[in-house]
C-alpha cells in the first residue's frame, strides 16, 4: 500500500513540475511514476506490488469482457422468436470467506452471462445463483470457480 502512496506522490510531483493539475496530466504522471517504480522494482521490493496490480487489472478486463458478452447473450436470447428457457436457482459452494470478497463475487456474477446472485446462506457457505439457463448447473459452477473466484483469490489474497 505504501508503494501505491509513493506512486501517487510521484504523480503529484510530475504535475507540480509541469505546472498543470488537470486530470489528464495527473493520469499521465501516474503512468510515468509506475514506469519509474517498475524500473527499480528489485531494489525497493515492489515485485509483489506489480504482480498484484497486473492481477487486479486482469480481473477488471475479464469483467468488462464478460459484461459485453452477457449483454450480447441477453440480446440474442430476447430477439429469438421462440424462447427456450430453462431458468432455475442453484447453490454455489463458496471458497472465499471475507465479506468484501463475497460481495465482489456476487456483483461480478450478477453482471455476467445468464447468472444473477439472489442470496447468501446464513453460514456463508453457499451463494444462491439464479441462472437463465439452468439445465447444466455443474458447468456454470465450474466456470465461476475457475474464472472469477480464482482471479479474486489471486488479486486479494
Amino acid at each position: 500500500m505504501s508503494l501505491f502512496l509513493i506512486n501517487v506522490l510521484l504523480a503529484l510531483a510530475w504535475a507540480a513540475v509541469t505546472g498543470s493539475f488537470t486530470f489528464l496530466n495527473l493520469a499521465f504522471g501516474f503512468v510515468l511514476a509506475t514506469g519509474a517504480l517498475s524500473l527499480i522494482r528489485e531494489q525497493v521490493g515492489s515485485v509483489g506490488y506489480f504482480s498484484r496490480a497486473r492481477r487486479v487489472i486482469s480481473l477488471m478486463l475479464l469483467f468488462v469482457y464478460e459484461l459485453i458478452l452477457s449483454a450480447w447473450k441477453v440480446a440474442v436470447l430476447v430477439l429469438t422468436p421462440r424462447m427456450d428457457l430453462k431458468p432455475g436457482i442453484f447453490a454455489y459452494p463458496l471458497k472465499l470467506d471475507r465479506d468484501f470478497e463475497i460481495t465482489l463475487l456476487a456483483n461480478l456474477i450478477t453482471l455476467t452471462p445468464g447468472t444473477l446472485s439472489v442470496d447468501v446462506s446464513d453460514d456463508r457457505r453457499f451463494l444462491y445463483v439464479h441462472a437463465i439457463d439452468c439445465s447444466d448447473p455443474d458447468s456454470i459452477r465450474r466456470d465461476i470457480a475457475e474464472g472469477f473466484e480464482r482471479k479474486i483469490m489471486e488479486a486479494f489474497h
Partner: peptide, 23 residues
C-alpha cells in the same frame, strides 16, 4: 440482488417452466 432477495424471501415463486430451485 436486493430486489431478488426481497422477492424470494417474501414468497414470489419462480415461473412454472423453471427446472430447479436449490434454494
Amino acid at each position: 440482488h436486493l430486489l431478488a432477495k426481497a422477492a424470494y424471501s417474501v414468497g414470489y415463486r419462480l415461473d412454472a417452466i423453471s427446472v430447479r430451485d436449490e434454494m
